[in-house]
Structure formats: C-alpha cells, structure tokens
C-alpha cells in the first residue's frame, strides 16, 4: 500500500517538474515574442507549437471522431514533449527557429538549432534562458526574421497551413 502511495507521489512530483520546465519555456517564448514584436513593429510573431499540433493532425482528427481506442504510445502523455519556436509574418509564411525537447522530469531540456544539427543540453532553467538568448542572436534567426519582415502583411489562413509551412523534423 505504502509502496503504491509513494510511487504515485513520485509520479506526481515528476509530472510537476515536467510541467514547470514546460511553463518556463513558454514564458521564455512569450518574452522572445514580445521582443520580436517590438523590434519588428508587430509584423513578425513568435509562437511555440507542440509537435502534436505540427505533425499529427490525422491522429487528432481520429481522436475527435472516436476512431482511436486508448493505447500505450498513442496517448500524448506517452510521447517525449517537443515544441518548436516558429516565427511567422502576417502572411501564411512561417519559419522554424529552433526546437525544444523536455526530458521525462523536465530537465535536462535539449535545444536543437538554430543551426541545423546543433544540439545543446541544458540542465537548469537559467541554462535554458542562456541557450535561448544565444539562439536568438544566431545569424539564421536574423535572416529568417528579416525574410519575414520583407514578406507579407495579411493574416495566416489556418493553423494547419501554419504547421505545414513550419515543417519541423519528424521523429
């Protein structure tokens, strides 16, 4: 009895650590979005997209229509949580800036990009902040933001279109 009780406590503790790490990255993404919004006169937006939203529209539709039964590995919570920093302008154009992957207990947080194949493993929130600041200073980010600034001004049409345009790497 005690064994199960402490096991579940441990599971909740890990879940809370994971949620804290995700919340911190969401906070950083909002800070970055505010800075980009300020520097681009509101033309370029920064959004943090879940991998699920970018990759698995079919599964979401299947779940919505009750086509999928519960199964291990098929549940969102069975997956490694990955998020993508996406920059977009008022048009449908969107550019992937970098990827964030969370360990099962939140940290370490792995930042992939902005340079292709670059991997940085961060052991704490402060390290993630430093990694984000360094990533934001990368020339590739500057080029993508400039490209978006130079392109359109109208609103994106659909979330699916946005996700399609971002094209993050698959598993």
């Amino acid at each position: 009895m005690n064994g199960f009780g402490s096991a579940i406590d441990h599971a909740f503790e890990l879940q809370a650590q994971h949620a804290d790490a995700v919340a911190f990255v969401e906070t950083l993404a909002r800070e970055l979005a505010a800075a980009v919004n300020n520097k681009t006169g509101g033309i370029v937006k920064i959004v943090l997209l879940d991998q699920e939203k970018t990759l698995n529209l079919g599964k979401q539709l299947g779940r919505a229509f009750g086509l999928l039964r519960p199964q291990l590995g098929g549940d969102d919570e069975d997956r490694t949580v990955r998020k993508y920093l996406i920059a977009r302008s008022g048009t449908s154009e969107a550019r992937a800036l970098w990827e964030v992957e969370f360990a099962e207990a939140g940290y370490p947080v792995t930042v992939r990009g902005p340079r292709e194949k670059r991997v940085e493993v961060c052991s704490s929130a402060a390290d993630v902040r430093d990694a984000f600041v360094d990533a934001a200073a990368d020339v590739r980010v500057g080029r993508k933001l400039q490209s978006l600034l130079d392109s359109g001004t109208s609103e994106p049409e659909t979330t699916a279109q946005l996700a399609s345009a971002a094209e993050p790497p698959s598993d």
Partner: peptide, 13 residues
C-alpha cells in the same frame, strides 16, 4: 562540419 554539441550547466557552456 555540421556543428557543435554543447551542454549548459550553472551558466557554463
């Protein structure tokens, strides 16, 4: 060359 792999810990890269 495909890039550096780094680890951040306590503010150190």
């Amino acid at each position: 060359g495909t890039g550096p792999q780094t680890t951040r810990h306590l503010g150190t890269v």
